[in-house]
């Protein structure tokens, strides 16, 4: 406690901030489930970064493998753990499931990040305005938010994709439109509580402008629930993405590496009815990959909430 640390004021301040982050991390690691969640998420991120480079080829697309049976080309799925070339087997259309999962990790994470981060940014800006300024503008923002929240998620996305065409940007845009209202609402709720804190009043008393108060005090103190919300939403976005791909409302064809797309390959084939029965791995393996990722994110998000809410610390 009393050790006299030396260094420039800047380095000391940084050191202190690092220490406090370390402490938060320590509290996170005290929960085994959250630690496992975090580890799995990190593993996925690593795979998304490194995996496609190792496999090579177009990082976005899966390669098609043709199999010859007699004289004709067939795309019948191959079982997993049998061929070293296809460790997890292949799905309909001759795509390697392993390749699809690894490359899909990158695509899915990029798409989901784009959606979640933009949604959160819009939410923080609108939520802060609605919470801090309030008044007619705040009311208007919140009512619009309510309207968007009351629309069914998938249906909006489908509508956008149908009307504006099946483009990548449209898909991301549609998902952002689905997600920003949640953040706006969370941020506004937080801002309303933080706004009443005495340190905000003290800052105003010191002559701080509204913008400065919001940036310096309000946002730093209301941002943490957003991180929790983001970590939980990541999984939801990926599920929605998978659902859209599965339903066939996509901007890309069957070769696009995306987890939901791998499943849809099975369901869209001529053998769809019998796929689960005859070729169970074509659905279960990518399904499990999605399940594990979403589950881990949720565990991590729960742990994060406990850490960031000091009342839960003990």
């Amino acid at each position: 406690m009393t050790t006299q640390t030396v260094g420039t004021p800047l380095s000391r301040a940084l050191k202190k901030r690092l220490e406090s982050t370390k402490r938060s991390f320590y509290f996170l690691t005290r929960s085994p489930l959250a630690t496992i969640g975090l580890a799995v998420v990190i593993a996925y991120v690593l795979i998304a970064i490194v995996g496609p480079e190792i496999i090579g080829g177009n990082p976005l697309m899966m390669k098609q493998y043709y199999l010859f049976q007699g004289h004709s080309i067939v795309f019948n799925p191959l079982p997993p753990f049998k061929y070293s070339q296809f460790p997890l087997g292949t799905t309909f259309g001759g795509y390697s499931i392993y390749e699809g999962i690894v490359k899909g990790a990158r695509n899915d994470l990029i798409l989901a990040s784009a959606v979640v981060i933009s949604g959160a940014l819009i939410g923080v800006v609108l939520g802060s305005i609605a919470g801090y300024k309030g008044g007619v503008l705040g009311e208007a923002i919140m009512r619009v938010t309510d309207i968007f929240l009351s629309l069914p998620t998938i249906v909006i996305a489908l509508a956008f994709l149908t009307v504006l065409g099946r483009y990548e940007n449209v898909m991301i845009g549609a998902l952002i439109i689905i997600w920003w209202p949640t953040y706006t609402r969370v941020v506004r709720g937080q801002v309303l509580t933080v706004r009443e804190q005495k340190y905000v009043e003290a800052s105003v008393a010191a002559g701080s402008s509204s913008l400065r108060t919001v940036i310096k005090h309000i946002i730093p103190n209301s941002i943490y629930p957003i991180f929790v919300q983001m970590s939980l939403d990541y999984g939801n976005v990926i599920l929605t993405l998978a659902a859209l791909f599965f339903l066939g409302f996509t901007f890309a064809g069957p070769g696009f590496a995306e987890w939901g797309n791998i499943i849809s390959a099975a369901s869209n084939s001529a053998y769809a009815g019998a796929a689960l029965y005859n070729y169970p791995w074509t659905i279960t393996i990518p399904g499990l990959v999605i399940l594990l990722f979403v589950l881990s994110l949720n565990l991590f998000g729960d742990g994060l909430r406990d850490v960031l809410d000091p009342r839960m610390r003990r």
Binding site: K16, R17, P220
Partner: peptide, 9 residues
């Protein structure tokens, strides 16, 4: 308790 911003040094 509440008059100092908890996230500021």
């Amino acid at each position: 308790v509440s008059s100092l911003d908890p996230r500021m040094l």
